[in-house]
Amino acid sequence: MELRINQKTYEVEADADTPLLWVIRDDLGLTGTKYGCGLAQCGACSVLVDGSVVRACVTPVAGVVGREVTTIEAIEADSVGKRVVAAWVEHQVAQCGYCQSGQVMAATALLKHTPNPSDAQIDAAMVNLCRCGTYNAIHAAVHDLAAQQEGA
């Protein structure tokens, strides 16, 4: 089947029900997206599909054919994603870093749909787990971004 990932077209051979995460990591070697729980509970595997965040470990690959997938590798090609990564650096959010590609995807999706989210909206959207406990830094970074205007 043909997949569009990070503005490139890939021809992959996979069963229809293979999780998108396996195709991204094992077949295409894009290992920035992480495997956490495999049950859609933690968010480490978050990627964007047509600009919305999905958990790649529970997304059958057949369901994203004909749609645009974005992974952490290409997030800075996106103007919102680029600002998110800059804020992450500014706030030195990452500690061990394992969950952070998923956190960046979640923040990017939130800001794409809701450019100026309230604190409550940030809390409602940023639900990926982080075992280092970087939640306060994540909240602060997204809070800063929420106050900015695009291109500022």
């Binding site: 999905v54 958990r55 529970v58 997304t59 059958p60 369901g63």
Partner: peptide
């Protein structure tokens, strides 16, 4: 994540 914001799930999976 699995059952969809629209409640429609994902195909037959």
């Amino acid at each position: 994540s699995c059952h969809g914001l629209d409640g429609k799930g994902q195909a037959e999976w």
